[in-house]
Design a protein around this nucleic acid. Sequence first.
DNA 1: TCTGGCACTCGTGTGACGGGAGTGCCAACT
DNA 2: AGTTGGCACTCCCGTCACACGAGTGCCAGA
Lengths: 340, 340
Amino acid sequence: MVDDRKLDVLRAIVEDYVATEEPVGSKALVERHGLGVSPATVRNDMAALEEEGYIHQPHTSAGRVPTDKGYRLFVDKLATLKPMSTAERRAIATLLDGAVDLDDVVQRSVRLLSQLTRQVAIVQYPTLSRSTVRHVELVPLTPTRLMLILILSTGRVEQRLVELEAPIADADLAEVRVAVNGAASGVQIAAAAAALGELPGVARPDQADATRAIVAVLTEAMSDHRSDERVAVSGTANLARYGDFDTAVRPLLEALEEHVVLLKLLGESGADAVTVRIGHEGPYSELAATSVVATGYGPMDAHLGSLGVVGPTRMDYPGSMAAVRAVARYVSRILDEGNQ
Amino acid sequence: MVDDRKLDVLRAIVEDYVATEEPVGSKALVERHGLGVSPATVRNDMAALEEEGYIHQPHTSAGRVPTDKGYRLFVDKLATLKPMSTAERRAIATLLDGAVDLDDVVQRSVRLLSQLTRQVAIVQYPTLSRSTVRHVELVPLTPTRLMLILILSTGRVEQRLVELEAPIADADLAEVRVAVNGAASGVQIAAAAAALGELPGVARPDQADATRAIVAVLTEAMSDHRSDERVAVSGTANLARYGDFDTAVRPLLEALEEHVVLLKLLGESGADAVTVRIGHEGPYSELAATSVVATGYGPMDAHLGSLGVVGPTRMDYPGSMAAVRAVARYVSRILDEGNQ
DNA sequence: TCTGGCACTCGTGTGACGGGAGTGCCAACT
DNA sequence: AGTTGGCACTCCCGTCACACGAGTGCCAGA
């Protein structure tokens, strides 16, 4: 069914089409690639490939274009990851090492990824849920008003206001702070919520009200999945290179506004495998003309978030996959370092 | 020179062109607006307006299109701000009141503004420089490593790591914390840097090194204008409604990637006046086809940042100006409340 | 199994052409 | 002096016909 030469032909078609954005014919194919056979032979193979649904002819007397199925085969069997050049590696390393905080890491990463791939890049902020509490700080603003600061192992900092029923003395506040940190520090978010729930019960009676208010705000902040939905996007201008505006650019622009949609697009990729979703394989029918190359990141086997690129199905898969993998690895390493 | 009817004609041309995106002719004009004169009369006026550079004819036998100068006159003399409907006012109020922190305020505002105007909205994060220090917190992570947290009056929180030469005792740390807050709390950023500079000299000798390290990181964090350059963008999908891709959409998409460019576009608008920059009036020749409607925000007369919308010169100026002003007022009010 | 040849299909670019929207100008009217 | 109706003129745009050429499918021969 799929002998070697036919696969070569498919690979050549994909590469040429990606490069030229035009249907590719048998003659141009044998010229640009050293296939060593005549156009007529290639035509036979093309007919077979079309029969099997890997390529498609926009109209009679036009060249062939890969189908989603064709891209799929290409990615699964034919693509060899383009290794990053040493210059690129060094650029990644120096750029990301200069980041000063979590926000900065995410923003530099997304920018970098869009520049490397010349496509739209998406980076999800690290989720709260799998990280641990590093420290909880309570700062008195007025006698009945505290600022609560929650510092997580990923470097994320959440801040909330706490309103108290009654004023609290500095000494009492210090005790509550110690109690809260005793229960939560170093503990995973999920477990910390449970441990904190016990606190108001065992606190000194005159500190119980304040403890209860603080714990309420704290658990609310920890369970706030708003930040789980945060994503950074970069490289929108690369959409300008798209050919067809209405079928390709507009739906994607709209999707980029909806962070929930983006997260669904990125999906729950495994931490070490680069996932490729081609055209209709994705969850949105409006985005049938776009592909997603994504992977998870996070130190070791902990999945903290996903990142990737989206672009036309006609995209450079090997290059994108390599770039996505490289950036994910660097980001994982940096998060790991900051975590010590 | 510019008698009343000619101004009426100009207003009608602008309104029709904005609505239809097509050159507007004399006949359609008298039909759609009750001008009470004949097409021939209007033609005479149009000839005069064109002579003076307010309108322009793409080619003979076509209708007229406003020039930048024409839009300018329209905005300055002819536009009456469309008041927001009560439904819109309520939508603004409820949406923005639900914001939990500064990030949330900015992100909700920018989204709201893009939805109200159906254009690309931009909101600059509040600058550090004009805000005051609310509190500085020092959290020991390891004996020689502190996390420094800087809380500003706008609600912004900055975090930095501090590496110490030698371990520091908790008691000493508490004293340094008091000293630092004594020097900086409630003081404007600019003044705080100076006050902090004195500290290492007057500190107890055994605390001088630690104080010096902390102050160094703190002044660095306060002078970090990186956050001054942060902007939020929303509504990119509205670009899809643009007609001409290459001259209008592409340059703007590219500009949206460059936050520095955006800040320059927003400009240093006064806090209470809505600024309109039309086409070539702006600083970038590539953006000759786009206009900017912007204003400053901030409680009272303090200018904390700018916000606005960008769109085609052919845009609904009265509606955009009203929306920009309304959102800026609500944002200012919210920042003021959070500041007490 | 591959190859060269050949007839066929069909999209694309070009040029001619008519319709129509809109203008400018002029003479007449108020 | 300002306004109006009439009229000739300009020029964009959509349509149609047509030739060109790229590309194909098929078939006979190596």
